[in-house]
Design a protein around this nucleic acid. Structure first.
Lengths: 196, 196
DNA sequence: GCCGTTCTGGACGAGATAGTCAAGAATGGG
DNA sequence: CCCATTCTTGACTATCTCGTCCAGAACGGC
């Protein structure tokens, strides 16, 4: 009936994400994205609207995946909750260390650049942080029930602390702190969590 | 002998800093800075070189002031070291909370946007983080000697942890976490530091 | 005063940049 | 096989943006 799309929307969004990730919102030209995806600008505008709408689409999807990935890593039975928490912290630290190109985290980059002026970005990141802290809180509460973390500590407070450390690791990694420093911080954060 | 400058260089740098702070490197137009400072572009280029040189000048100065301010807050006799550390952490948390406009920290914004592609920015931020951790380490070591923090903990590791939390507070504040959440994280971080 | 020197203000040019548009291409139904 | 419909391509416009340049202004030494 009508001419079908010749591109895979998900692949295009991924490529666009990489461009925004590499050069930020203001620094990324629509022509860059067109060139990287191989699409003409007409197709891009037709399928996603303008630059801002495309960015929000990319950002929202990235946030959703980040929350989902964290949930999967942290969810599970109480008996292994502490182990999951520890593995998650180490996984973040290793991902920071492994990021040779220092591209950092798209969320950190986008909120730093846009949250102040772009309410849509601010709202999405707020929601994400709520979700992340929620997953951490649930996992920590599980570890408390299993007797791996002191039961008298407020799990939400500990979760906030862990979240701040994880975000801090990202920031320090971007700032050039060496692998040993990053790993030491992750280990120290786990070590100071109150034991029963 | 020659016509003197009609502007105050420090004031112009401050105004330029505010522009970069508000809209980032790529998002700030040289014409914006010219308009904000009241200078013609000829004067700007004559005095500071191009946009990138001006940005580095601003960024370097901001980093220097940040390190200097931290040093002043943390330096002092062992007897009050823990109190200084506590006050510093609270001061950062309060500054994040007080930042209604959510402009965040210029260092976080600049490293997020530029460190990946701009070696000068990366190098300056690396140095800054080294300095900050150094000041924190010295203060924590003092608190250990005074018996306010467990002596068997590695002060550099604890300093790394505190630095990560402080950077994380910035990131979370930018991301819209509410004042109560920010303050709770600061308090929790202080609470988990090992007591003798 | 006059002059050489540096600073100022803004016009200017080359190239970039977001978004539009029209001509043509691909598709399935009739 | 033709048509209506949607998609594609890339030329095009209007506006920005960086950086340069130059005519004139402000200064102190002479």
């Amino acid at each position: 009936m009508a001419r079908p799309r010749s591109f895979d929307e998900a692949a295009v969004l991924e490529t666009a994400r990489d461009r925004f990730w590499a050069t930020g919102y203001a620094g990324t030209k629509v022509d860059d994205i067109a060139a990287a995806t191989g699409l003409g600008k007409g197709s891009l505008y037709g399928a996603f609207g303008d630059k801002h709408a495309l960015f929000l689409r990319v950002f929202d999807h990235y946030c959703t995946e980040a929350a989902e990935g964290t949930r999967r890593q942290l969810e599970g039975p109480d008996a292994t909750a502490y182990r999951r928490l520890r593995d998650h912290v180490h996984a973040i630290a290793e991902s920071v260390v492994a990021d040779q190109a220092r591209r950092g985290c798209l969320i950190a980059k986008s909120t730093a650049e846009c949250a102040e002026h772009d309410e849509a970005v601010a709202a999405r990141s707020r929601q994400l942080f709520r979700d992340l802290q929620g997953h951490l809180t649930a996992c920590i509460a599980g570890a408390q029930r299993a007797g791996d973390i002191a039961a008298d500590a407020d799990p939400a407070h500990l979760a906030g602390l862990v979240l701040a450390v994880l975000r801090g690791l990202e920031a320090l990694g971007k700032g050039g702190v060496e692998p040993a420093g990053i790993r030491a911080i992750a280990d120290t954060a786990l070590a100071v969590l109150p034991k029963p």
